[in-house]
Design a protein around this nucleic acid. Structure first.
Lengths: 216, 216, 216, 216
DNA sequence: GATGAATGAGGTTTCATTCAT
DNA sequence: GATGAATGAAACCTCATTCAT
C-alpha cells in the first residue's frame, strides 16, 4: 500500500479540482484501507479517525454518516469500472479492418488488469459490501446499464458477424470471457496471495482457453 | 426458505446424533438467515435470539462467543464443499474405461449444483466472512488441502493421459473449469436474481465452452 | 423531595403490579427529578444513570429512547389530572339537593390542590415539555377529550340551571374558574417559592373572587 | 411571521442605534424563531447559523456563548413587559377625576394585548427558559421590582380608596386580574391555537368577570 | 438448561466553541 | 468582521457478554 496507486492518485486529482481537502484525503485513505481490511461494519469511525490523524468529529463534518463515507468511496470506482465500454471513439477501434477478437480481448484484459491492480482495495470493498447495501446496488445498476451494456452487445455482435467467435447470446459470451479472467484475478489476489504466480504464463493460458472456447 | 433445505436437514441430523438441542437448532437457523442477510458484523446476538425465540443468554450457553457461533455454522459446510473429491471409491470411477471427461464434468457439476442450491445462505456467509476471519481461512485450508487437491490432480492427470484434455497444469485446468461454472452460478444467484434464466441452456453452453476450451 | 409524595407512591404501586423493577423505579425517580430541575433537553441520560445508580445501558433496556422515558413518566399523570371529572358516580353528587356550586368548587379545588402538591415535579415537566413534543400533545388531547369535557359541560349546566351561576358558555366558565386557581398555584409555586404565603387566606380570597365573578 | 412584528421592529431600531449589524439581526431573528419552536437546549448553534445565513463562527463573534445569545434576546423584552407601569406620567392619568377602574383595566389590557401579540415568540422563550436559568430569574426580578411593583400598589390603592374595588391586598388584586387575562391569552395561544375564538366576546366576558369579582 | 436484567465498553453522531485564513 | 474547517467532549444508543435466579 506504499506505492502511489491509482486510487491514491484519484484522491489527489479530486483535490486539485478543489473537491477534497487535505484532511478529507486522509480520511478517505484511512477508510479505504480499513474497510478493505476488516469490512465496513467491523470498522469503527474512531479507528478511521485515528489512522487519518484527525478528530472523530471531522469525519462527520465531511460525511454526514458512516454510510455516506462508504458511498463516497465506492461510487466513483463504479463508473471507472465500466469506463472503457463507454469510450466515445470505441467505434473507430471496431472499424479497423485488421482488429481481431483476440487483439481486442488482449487489449481489454490488459487495460482492466491495470485498473484492477490499482484499485484492488476499492474493488474488494465494492464486492464485499454490495450485497448488504441496497443503495450501492442501485448505484451499481445505474452505472452498468444501459449504455455500457449496449456497447458490449455491439462489440460482441461485431465479432460474431466477422465470423470470429461462436454464435451465442452476447451476454453469455461476455459472461464466459469475464468469468475466466475474473476467476484468475480472484484466485491470484484473494484466495492465494502468498503463492508466487507465473503471471504471464497463467494469463496467456487463460486467454488461449477463452479463445478456444469461443472459436466458431 | 420454507421447504426443507439441505442445511436444515443437516441441522436435524446433527440433532439426531444428540449434538444439537431444539433451542440450538433454532439459534443456528436464525443465525444463518441473519448472517446471510446482513453479514456477521452487522448482526446482533439480540436479533438472533429474537428470531430464534430464545433468551440472549441461551446463545452464550451453547456458543461461548459470537464468533464461535459463526465457526460452528460455517465449519461443517467446508468439509461438505469438497466432499465429492475425497470420496473413497473415486478411484473405481476413474477406472471405468468408458468414463469420459465430459461425463465426469457433467456429473460433478450436477452434484455441486444441488449442493450449492441447498446451501446458498451458508456459502454466502462462507464467502463473505472468510476474508475477515483468519480462523476461517485456516479451517478452509485444512479442508481443501491436501487430500482433495491430490485427488483433483490425480483426476485431471487421468484425463490428460487419456488424451481427452489439454496439457496444462492440473490446478490451471481446475481453475478454468471452476471459474466458468462459478461465474454462471454467481451471475445467476447474486447479481441478477430477478432475471428468469433459461437454466438448462445456459449451463449447457457453459459446459460446451469449457469442453472446447480444454480440448486437446 | 424527601417525604413520600404521591408520584413516589405511584411508582411503588406500579411495582406491586409487577410493572416496575427496582432499578426501573430508581431510573424513573432520577429522571423526574432531573427533568423537572433542568428540563428534558438539558438532561443527559448519563446524569440520570448516575443519580439512579445504574449503568447507562440499563436505561435503554427499559426505555428504547430518552423520549420514551419522558413519555412513560408524563403519560400516567395526564389521566390522573382529569380523573375526578370522569368519576363514575359524579351524577350522584349532582343529585344531592343541598349541593351548591360553592360546595362543589371548594371540594374540587381541595381535591386538585392535593393532587398538584403531590405531583408538582411531574406537572412541571408536563407543562414545560408539552409545547415541544407533538406526541405529548396528542396524548394530552386523548386524555382530556371528550369524556371529561362532557362531564364538565354537564356540571356547569347543572349549576346554571339551578340559577346559581351566570349564563356563560360552559368552557368559558371553566376557563375563568380554572385561571383564578391556577394563577394562584403558579404564583405560589413557580414564581415566588421563597415567599411565605398565607395559604388559607389567599385561597379563600381566590374562591370568593370566582364566586362573585360567576354569580348571576 | 412575515408581517413586521414588534420585536422585528425592535431589532431594526437597535440597529439604527448602531447596536446591531445586519448579520446580528439575522442571527437574533433566527435564534428567536428556533428557540421558540424547539426550546433553547434543543436548538443548535449550527441550526441558527443556517437559518440566519451566516457562518457558525459569526454567532460567537457577537455572542461569546450560546447563553449570551439567549440573554441578549430575552433581556430587552423584560423591561418592555412592565413598561406601562413605570411610565413617568402615570400619576397624571390617575389624577383624572373621570378615570374609572374599568377604564383603566380596559386600557391596560388593550395595551398589553398588543404587546403580547407582537412579542409572542419572545414571551414564549422567556416563560419557557426562566425556570432553568438563574441569570434570567435575576434579570427578571431586577426589572419587575421594585419600581413597577410600587406603581401597581399605588394604582390599586387609588381605586380602592375611590371605593371602586374590593379591599384586598394590592398584590392579590393584581394576581386575580392578571390570572383571568393571562388564562385567556394562554388558552387562546398555546393550548388551542387551532380553534377559532370569538376574540371580542371572550375578552369582554373576561373583563366583566374580573369587574364583578373585584367589585366592592 | 434457560432466562433476561444488568453491565460497561465502545459505537455513531452532535455540539458549542476555537482559530487560521 | 466574517468564515467554516477542525476540534474533542459529551450526547444518545448498541452490543456482546455475564450472572443471579
Amino acid at each position: 500500500m506504499n506505492e502511489l496507486n491509482d486510487w491514491e492518485k484519484l484522491i489527489d486529482e479530486e483535490n486539485e479540482d478543489g473537491k477534497l481537502t487535505e484532511k478529507q484525503k486522509r480520511i478517505v485513505k484511512a477508510a479505504i484501507e480499513t474497510f478493505a481490511e476488516k469490512g465496513y461494519s467491523a470498522t469503527s469511525t474512531n479507528e478511521i479517525a485515528r489512522k487519518a490523524g484527525v478528530a472523530e468529529g471531522t469525519i462527520f463534518r465531511h460525511y454526514k454518516t458512516k454510510k455516506d463515507l462508504l458511498i463516497a468511496i465506492v461510487a466513483p470506482v463504479m463508473s471507472r469500472l465500466v469506463a472503457p465500454f463507454i469510450i466515445r471513439d470505441l467505434n473507430k477501434v471496431l472499424d479497423k479492418k485488421h482488429e481481431t477478437f483476440e487483439a481486442f480481448l488482449r487489449a481489454m484484459i490488459e487495460n482492466r488488469k491495470v485498473f484492477i491492480k490499482q484499485n484492488l482495495p476499492l474493488l474488494k470493498i465494492l464486492i464485499q459490501e454490495i450485497p448488504f447495501h441496497p443503495e450501492l446496488k442501485v448505484l451499481f445498476k445505474k452505472h452498468v446499464a444501459p449504455e455500457p451494456l449496449a456497447k458490449i452487445k455491439q462489440l460482441i455482435k461485431h465479432f460474431q458477424e466477422k465470423g470470429e467467435i461462436i454464435d451465442l447470446p452476447p451476454y453469455t459470451v461476455m459472461r464466459l470471457a469475464a468469468s475466466a479472467v475474473a476467476g484468475y484475478v480472484i484466485a491470484q489476489n484473494l484466495l492465494e496471495p502468498e503463492i508466487d504466480w507465473d503471471d504471464d504464463t497463467e494469463m496467456e493460458q487463460t486467454i488461449q482457453f477463452v479463445l478456444r472456447g469461443l472459436k466458431r
